[in-house]
């Protein structure tokens, strides 16, 4: 009896969930105007980082402009491993999505499914992070190495090209942030011989951890003059650490990415500059590129650098 009840309840749950899921496409069908309608699946690394939400906003804005595109945002809830993301790509193939926009967590692990999608005739647009295959239609990303070099030049300028600096990175082993660390290092070592990088710590993008690591660096090196942070969480943590230590004047922070928190700290002077990517452009141009491809056209340039903007106190108002 109990078992029956449980199964019944489960059945009701499944039906109601399925009902919810069904609702969306029906609405879309009735709203669709003339011409063909396309469903495009956007798969990012997770669905909570502001960065990905901006990609999504850009994609949705482009879809709204074009009018005949529906964007399905299908990202893992939290940071996961690449196999979960590969399953999402497979789902999109099975659901006969008209195009797939993918920010790959792992360039090797996602290669087979990207190729599978292409075999199934589905255009693949890569955004933010690539896959090690030539079999894609367009790749929109920040040239992270170039951005990191720009960050190095900015920090070097701020500290008068001499002194001790520390690095707070996000995830050890993640392609994007490791590029930001390594390109920064190479630039400092080759161009600014009087700057010494005393060490690197990995905050996992956790603001508390970044704050703690930065505080420990300031304790360990009282003569520290600069800190470079490689993503939003690290930048906010480091900015707060410097602000709380009252060292905004003596320690220059150059970070990466943008958010309300980063903005506040730049206003306060605790962060001197932040390399702001253009995730909105990635999503926006990504959908535009996908639209070109699905309607039989070709993208003129396959690999597109969406660039960075250096956010400082002076241009804060212009950054979105």
């Amino acid at each position: 009896m109990k078992k029956l009840l449980a199964m019944l309840l489960f059945g009701v749950l499944v039906i109601s969930v399925a009902g919810c899921a069904k609702e969306a496409p029906e609405k879309e069908g009735s709203a669709g105007g003339e011409g063909e309608n396309y469903t495009m699946t956007l798969i990012t690394m997770d669905s909570m980082d502001e960065h990905w939400l901006k990609v999504k906003n850009g994609a949705e804005a482009a879809a709204a402009e074009l009018g005949n595109i529906k964007v399905v945002f299908d990202a893992p809830q939290t940071k996961v491993d690449a196999t979960v993301q590969a399953q999402l790509v497979e789902n999109a193939i099975v659901n006969k999505s008209d195009a797939i926009l993918l920010a790959a967590l792992d360039k090797e692990a996602l290669k087979p499914v990207v190729e599978k999608a292409k075999e199934a005739g589905i255009p693949v647009i890569l955004v933010d992070s690539g896959v090690s295959t030539e079999n894609y239609d367009a790749f929109l990303s920040t040239d992270n190495a170039a951005a990191a070099e720009l960050a190095a030049d900015n920090l070097a300028e701020l500290i008068g090209k001499t002194g001790k600096i520390a690095i707070i990175n996000a995830q050890a082993g993640a392609g994007t942030t490791m590029t930001r660390e390594n390109a920064f290092r190479d630039r400092i070592e080759s161009q600014y011989p009087d700057i010494e990088i005393v060490g690197v710590q990995y905050s996992d993008g956790d603001k508390q951890k970044a704050l703690n690591y930065a505080t420990d660096y300031m304790t360990q090196y009282p003569d520290l003059v600069g800190i470079y942070a490689c993503n939003e969480g690290s930048t906010v943590g480091v900015g707060n650490a410097v602000d709380q230590a009252g060292k905004s004047d003596s320690i220059h922070v150059v970070g990466f990415d943008f958010s309300a928190d980063v903005k506040g700290l730049i206003e306060k002077g605790a962060i001197k500059a932040s390399m702001v990517q253009n995730p909105y452009v990635m999503g926006y141009e990504g959908i535009k590129a996908a639209s070109t491809v699905v309607s039989g056209g070709q993208v003129s340039v396959k690999d597109i650098d969406t660039g960075v903007t250096v956010a400082t106190k002076d241009n804060l108002a212009d950054i979105k």
């Binding site: 980082d49 939290t78 993008g205 704050l211 928190d261």
Partner: peptide
């Protein structure tokens, strides 16, 4: 306490 330290409440705190 953690939110007060960074004057921000991230939904990803405490993972």
């Amino acid at each position: 306490v953690m939110a007060a330290r960074i004057i921000s409440a991230p939904p990803t705190a405490g993972m």
